[in-house]
Simulated scan of single mutants.
Amino acid sequence: MSEWKEYKLGDITNWYSGGTPSKDKKDYWGGSIPWISAKTMTDYQVSSSELTITENGLANGSRLAIEKDILLLVRGSGLFIDIPINIVEKPVAFNQDIKAIRAKNPELQDFIFFWLQGNKKGLNDILEETGIGAGKFDTDLLKKLDISIPTNKTEFDFIVQTAKAIFDKIDLLERQNAALEKMAQTLFRQWFLEEANDEWAISSLSEMANFLNGLACQKFPPKNDLDKLPALKIKELSSGISENSDWVSTDIKPEYIVKNSDVIFAWSASLMVKIWDGQDCILNQHLFKVTSEDYPKWFYYLWCKHHLTEFISIAASHATTMGHIKRGDLDEAKVLIPSPEELGAMTEQAEPLIQKIIANNIQINTLIKLRDSLLPKLMTGEVTVEQ
């Protein structure tokens, strides 16, 4: 291995704190500046947010991160699931739970970003817990982390370019999936809202598809280390299976096993409809696995998505600690059924979009596994240019 020079992270970077403008000041909000919080830190690069602030809001309680800055979440309950680390694609403001990190030498910026991504295990080791159960980082401890950087420019460039190629490919596929989803939604809206045929039959979600509710997985603990699968709960549906996921015995009815490409509907707490893109797992309670013997996947998936906003409103209206919908709400959710010939013509257009999303998800998961195994070795020199 070529020579690597060791630094303290804080010695080669500047750190900046964000903030939240007063919500009582209407002239602080609704401007043109994206305002980033933990909720927004879902992608590799960040450039937009549903919440925006004005120049006045920026000057009175927040801070601007410039292009190429690194955003690191340092406080939040989600830190125990994953540590969000983003590159700023275009200037954004950010809140007090996030730190912006800027290399004193701009040439090191990408390397430091990929080093942080590849060192999440080390970051987890210094993750603390707040009094309310959220995670937090001590910034002083972060700045004291040792980071080694290759002095050989060829090796330095190889590491950055290899890491960037993997991240860019994942990002490209995720953006492609977002575009495919939008295309499918556009077709659905055209067919069933804008150009609906009055002669089509009217059914309901509960008649059109099967909604299998999950198990109380804690009642099925593993009997050994081989015959088990992770439980798919709302947390996993949102963030993926992790080492913190619970394990369940596979000695259950096979229909409760969730496989890649199954449609999953979270009907309680955080309502969502998603095409599962992870490993085999066991369906937990508060989740439906949606299937149909009579209709194609795109049809029941998009109808579930269509009614999701209404279901979220119903769940929010329930005076309970955890909002939810009931099976009766599925009975009330209307579905238009075209003729078999019309449905077949629609399927020729819509189903390839859904299948492409599924294929992309498989490729994304393969790249994520490559990234997670290769990146820590790249960033420490364990994998070299020669290898």
Results as ranks from 00 to 15, higher is better:
366 T>M: 02
86 N>S: 06
123 L>C: 05
128 E>G: 00
110 D>K: 14
211 F>P: 08
171 D>T: 12
304 C>S: 15
29 W>Q: 03
300 Y>P: 13
319 A>C: 02
152 N>Y: 04
51 L>N: 13
105 N>M: 09
144 K>I: 02
88 V>Q: 01
262 D>C: 09
337 I>W: 04
87 I>D: 00
3 E>W: 11
368 I>K: 15
72 L>T: 09
111 F>D: 10
330 L>W: 07
273 V>E: 04
18 G>F: 12
193 L>Q: 14
122 G>Y: 08
289 K>C: 14
124 N>P: 00
120 K>I: 13
318 H>N: 13
191 W>A: 11
185 Q>T: 10
162 T>E: 08
204 S>N: 11
2 S>G: 04
58 L>A: 09
338 P>E: 10
124 N>M: 06
132 I>K: 01
58 L>T: 07
198 D>N: 09
360 N>F: 09
96 Q>H: 09
221 P>H: 11
70 I>Y: 00
340 P>D: 12
350 A>V: 05
350 A>Y: 01
154 T>H: 10
323 G>A: 08
293 E>K: 07
330 L>S: 06
361 N>D: 15
330 L>E: 04
132 I>N: 15
71 L>S: 11
216 A>S: 15
364 I>Y: 12
75 R>L: 00
39 K>E: 14
205 L>N: 04
317 S>I: 07
102 R>D: 02
256 Y>L: 03
378 L>A: 14
245 S>P: 12
206 S>A: 08
74 V>K: 15
249 S>W: 06
234 I>P: 01
335 V>R: 01
36 I>M: 00
153 K>S: 15
177 N>S: 01
191 W>Q: 13
126 I>R: 08
89 E>C: 04
245 S>H: 03
338 P>Q: 11
302 L>M: 10
2 S>N: 12
381 G>Q: 11
269 A>F: 04
170 I>M: 06
190 Q>N: 15
212 L>N: 05
52 T>D: 05
160 V>K: 13
297 K>H: 07
38 A>H: 06
313 S>H: 11
108 L>W: 14
340 P>G: 09
276 W>C: 02
80 F>D: 11
308 L>P: 05
23 K>W: 13
37 S>E: 07
209 A>P: 14
288 F>Q: 12
346 M>N: 10
203 S>E: 09
102 R>T: 09
295 Y>R: 05
15 W>T: 10
105 N>A: 13
94 F>Q: 02
255 E>V: 07
350 A>W: 01
66 I>F: 03
17 S>G: 11
160 V>G: 06
